[in-house]
Design a protein around this nucleic acid. Sequence first.
DNA 1: CAAAATCCTGATTGGTCGTTCAGGATCGCA
DNA 2: TGCGATCCTGAACGACCAATCAGGATTTTG
Lengths: 224, 224
Amino acid sequence: MSARSSLAAKAPEERRRRILAAAVEVLKEKGFAGARIADVASAAGTSAALVVYHFKTLDGALAEALGSVEDDFYDSFSRALPPRATAVQRLRLLGELGCESGPAVGNWALWIEVWVRALRDSQARALRRALDARWRQTLRDVVDTGLKEGSFTCADPAAAVVRLAALMDGLAVQVALRDPDVPDDQMTRLWLEAAAAELGVPPKLLIKAPRARATTKLTRPARA
Amino acid sequence: MSARSSLAAKAPEERRRRILAAAVEVLKEKGFAGARIADVASAAGTSAALVVYHFKTLDGALAEALGSVEDDFYDSFSRALPPRATAVQRLRLLGELGCESGPAVGNWALWIEVWVRALRDSQARALRRALDARWRQTLRDVVDTGLKEGSFTCADPAAAVVRLAALMDGLAVQVALRDPDVPDDQMTRLWLEAAAAELGVPPKLLIKAPRARATTKLTRPARA
DNA sequence: CAAAATCCTGATTGGTCGTTCAGGATCGCA
DNA sequence: TGCGATCCTGAACGACCAATCAGGATTTTG
């Protein structure tokens, strides 16, 4: 348990992190079903045995990798969103943020992987539940703000939030599977239009030119 | 190749069908990743070797099982839907049909399985594409009918259809994963409300008491 | 009714992979 | 400097499982 706290000797921890990152990468590429311990090892530039040394088992490693994804998401949410802004602005940001987390290779694919996993594994189910709950709450906060501001109109906010979250998942599936009817550059627009309708906002307020300004990075930090 | 066409000797074909049905069942229960050749065999009440005898390989069996699901779906679509009816009635039927294909054990789970599979397997991708295209087309037909009738209003039917289809997928994920925020008995209502909004129909026309009449079976024939 | 084709099975095999193991390197610490 | 803990590795083990095989039963056909 006692951590090696000396200065120039965090190599092991660093290695551990690298393995975790490698595991995430492998999950995106091959999915749970195709992820071999050797893949993770070689992606991390180490031996298979080391993976097992740090994480007791392969499943353990993958599970912890998923956990790290959760952390990344939480981080990027809070980092990207909550400066002072109107509900409309925040809603648009949310739409862009959510929709753009996909196209970057394999991100949405990873979610689908988590879903299947969650069908049978309680840990994965818990992870998804947590992330989804948080995402819906974020959405809900924005909706409530808009209602208070008077810029939104919505008879049943709870239902609207559930629908908007589900719609994003559904669109994500089509995009991840490269459905020709749902090109990824249309996803944001499709979602924002629905949001506009659900919340009684004039669509023009939400949907501008796809790329209006680039003051701060709207794209996700790095991975996840 | 010459089929045994004699009268009382379709046992082999019947056996083959049973294996296929068993494969579908196993897919629902354990998914692609967990499906063992022995599972299919025992579920069908035969030996593992026979599965391989009929279908060259396990993947072959699972792929063909998926195909049979496609057929079943096509059948149930056309059987359940198209008597003479107003667009509003048909839309409601579509919502109920689509949403209710889930709760029956593992049906939506099977779709999620297909999605992951489709991420990497082109055959599964083709299957999903075909089913989705057909589903969207069915929806589209109803929408067009409604527009012609004058009972629907919709600026962008194509987008509306994509959104409604995606919404159903997204809701299905929550239901399949037993998300407490999306109880399965609410799914139909949530979807129909969205449809009402997208198509400018007064919600009351679409959503009645959950179970108004039971003239004909609205529930799916059997499986799939 | 025989020969041939089809159908079916239990036992075996060959390969893949997660995990273990024994030992070697490196580091923290006294 | 030396000792114990931590970190790391290649090699070997063993479980699991898809696919093969050799042969037996049953059906079709000529």
